[in-house]
Amino acid sequence: MDEFNNRMEAQRNVLEVINRQLDKKEELCGLSKKAIERWIVANQINSESEICKILYTISEKLFFLANKSQEQISEEYRMVSSEISELKLDLEKAIG
């Protein structure tokens, strides 16, 4: 799969973890900072919670690669991709 679709897949996997919680009024629509802010307000979630901190970190990492050159991307993508996988596990633990 190409790097672009890999990044979309990483977002999909993280959103799947969040949106499997059935007690939420609104689903998390994306991993942009503004989509996360909306989800926090709509569901009255504590913005200082571990879940929110992890989500913001993942968001920053996902969008970090957007303007990197192809030469830089391979190595950095591997690194960020593995960090996101670890953060996804942290998210699962934080949700419980």
């Binding site: 799969m1 190409d2 672009f4 679709n5 979309m8 499997r20 689903e27 629509c29 994306g30």
Partner: peptide, 24 residues
Amino acid sequence: IKFFNLYCKAVDSISSGGNSVIFE
């Protein structure tokens, strides 16, 4: 091809009961 694959993946995800419909 890249954007066709993106479309197919999103449709597959919804069809198989994925829970992030708006993202898809």
